[in-house]
Design a protein around this nucleic acid. Structure first.
Length: 229
DNA sequence: GCGACAG
DNA sequence: ATCTTGTCGC
């Protein structure tokens, strides 16, 4: 099992970013997608111990039937720092990944992929760490702005542009709801990423794998709280 | 110096 | 990210 060493300080994480970002593959390098997974983390608002509860939920890509889930809790890592989210969440996420009953062909990560100032959002870091295709699905913008109009119609899209480059796509998955921001994580092109996010939707704002992972991560946190009481 | 800032 | 009831709207 190839283990990766994660930086312990923000400074070390920043130094490592260019090297890791260079490993990201922004093109389609994936086989048939039969199973997918959602990945998310849950933390406490104010927590000096910096505990992160992570969860991954695997599902059948076609029927969206859940196939299993796993969680992991890590403490003492980095705090939340914009731009360094991956270094905080990927260690517990990678452990959760190893607890899944199956190895998913594709992972939807809660947060950005290449739509990041140094091209290393949490989805990219998880992808290169596990060497699994990943897609970033974020609920708000980290950098860049939407180019053009985004009609209030389900399916509407508009490029997310930063420094004259398209780094992702704003996608309105539901009428009357704010868009989600889709970007390449690893081994998936942006058009393919968009297609999968749409295919894995269920008429709600967030795609099903992401939604289930969010609920699972919350359960991991509540279970940890109950266990320590 | 000021404002922005995934989760 | 999390704390939370009722409430507005299709």
């Amino acid at each position: 099992m190839p283990r990766m060493d994660f930086p312990t300080t923000a400074a070390a994480a920043r130094l490592l970013q260019p090297e890791l970002a260079a490993r990201v593959i922004a093109e389609d390098a994936l086989g048939p997608i039969r199973t997918v997974a959602g990945a998310d983390a849950s933390t406490l608002r104010f927590d000096p111990t910096r505990t992160v509860h992570a969860a991954m939920v695997a599902l059948d890509a076609e029927s969206l039937t859940p196939l299993g889930e796993a969680g992991a809790t890590h403490s003492g890592g980095l705090p939340y720092i914009p731009g360094l989210l991956g270094f905080r969440e990927v260690p517990p996420l990678a452990e959760a990944f190893s607890g899944l009953p199956i190895r998913p062909d594709l992972i939807l990560v809660d947060g950005h992929g290449l739509a990041h100032p140094r091209g290393l959002g949490v989805a990219c870091l998880l992808g290169v760490t596990l060497d699994v295709p990943t897609i970033g699905v974020a609920k708000s913008i980290l950098v860049g702005s939407i180019q053009g109009a985004l009609p209030d119609v389900a399916g509407a899209q508009a490029p997310l542009v930063w420094q004259d480059r398209v780094i992702g796509m704003a996608l309105r998955t539901r009428r009357g709801a704010n868009p989600v921001y889709v970007s390449t994580g690893h081994r998936v092109s942006l058009p393919t990423a968009l297609a999968w996010v749409i295919a894995l939707g269920r008429g709600r704002r967030l795609p099903e794998p992401t939604r289930l992972a969010h609920e699972a991560a919350t359960r991991v946190r509540l279970a940890a709280r109950a266990a320590s009481a």
